[in-house]
Design a protein around this nucleic acid. Sequence first.
DNA 1: AGCAATTATTTGTGATCACAAATTCCTGTC
DNA 2: GACAGGAATTTGTGATCACAAATAATTGCT
Lengths: 241, 241
Amino acid sequence: MGSSRPGTQSLQSRTYRALRRSILDGDFVPGRAVTIRGIAEDLGISPTSVREALRRLVAERALILSATGRVSVPVMTREKLAELVNARICLERQAAIDAVPGITDRVVSRLVRLNRAIDRAIEAGDHRRYLVTHRDFHFTLYRVGGGEVFLPLIESVWLQISPFLRYTLSGEHRSRYSTSDRHVEIIEALERRDATALGFAVEADIRHGIGALIESDWNRPDDAAAGPNTAGIRTADRESG
Amino acid sequence: MGSSRPGTQSLQSRTYRALRRSILDGDFVPGRAVTIRGIAEDLGISPTSVREALRRLVAERALILSATGRVSVPVMTREKLAELVNARICLERQAAIDAVPGITDRVVSRLVRLNRAIDRAIEAGDHRRYLVTHRDFHFTLYRVGGGEVFLPLIESVWLQISPFLRYTLSGEHRSRYSTSDRHVEIIEALERRDATALGFAVEADIRHGIGALIESDWNRPDDAAAGPNTAGIRTADRESG
DNA sequence: AGCAATTATTTGTGATCACAAATTCCTGTC
DNA sequence: GACAGGAATTTGTGATCACAAATAATTGCT
């Protein structure tokens, strides 16, 4: 079909993954307009696949569709952020608890390793690396409990938070972040296979990690009104991490 | 754009809504293959819009995309159903609790009215009417708490359960269903504005309503292998209910 | 200069088409 | 009759195009 060699995924799917990754990595500025043709040109492909990729991201609430059919990166509101935090707590606590029966020492040691990588990224001030490793830590845990149901739901919530998270890691916010402390609690609960403690640790991690921003001056002067996209969508095509 | 008069929604969006409604109403049999061209012919439109509508439903996990690009109605497994029930409990308990501050007597009386409509539908043996009113009852409650975050997540879970629910209302299963009893508990908790009791009532409603099926002989001989779609997709285009 | 009206451009929409992969149907063989 | 092999059909994919709505740019007027 089309022009794909066997083994190669569809162009639309690769486009989707590239865009999603860019969103998760914080390359999409809230408020910016995203045009089909703009991305199609950046990627050197026809608008067809881009349209489908964008619509998929709209369906996952990573992007929003205006009444006139225009796609853009959603702007965060306090109410929405509070709801997203609630959703994260609901879903991720349950996903973590569901993971407990499947936890092995191997998984725990991997989480310990990822946690060290997170600390290194924070110390080095490497935003992107922090986001990647932090994401990897959480999803490594949630993946243990199986979950063709919970994971997509959680991913949708992360996609909605990610464009906003960009702010948390740039500038003065970074110093307030001691996320890894809570990760240690998570790891300790896992070592004891203590589901209840794990649930509280996950909730605390989320609440302290993001919830703190609700009351802070996060609504900084927008670089949102900036021009059209070209946000450096990296086409690198690896399985989601 | 295209050929739509102003005020009319896009064809793709109407197609999506029609398909989603059919899924929620139980017209889609698990395992059945859904083809782009098939639906396009049924609806008398070009494949383009249908493809986008289908992909959106795939993104929402209402349908699944095989490795070869084929779209079909997912087949339920015990594990997945257990996960879906867990997800419903997580999300809907929270959504209900979030609704409590916004509950008015007017909402409560509407729920009472809907609950009576559900009972009537059960007595009359009207499956479709039962599904519609039952859905209306739950989402009327969840909508009170605002929620541009929780509602889409809950809708995704409902879409995943719906094709399976078709079984619960046909044949011998119906007699076991006394869903409305739990709805009364929900209403009583709402009248007292008792968030904690409400949470338990919602959980009980979900667990008893669907959870009972996990242990029952729900995996009846499939009419799944039946021919291509043409499942009577009703094109009626009203705002989602 | 400030603002409204008009023109030009951009952008989403949906149809059509060519192509190749996947599926189905038919046939021939054992 | 069951099954493998091959032709015919179906199906998804992605590009291209015409069109109209929406946005941006320009012009003209006060």
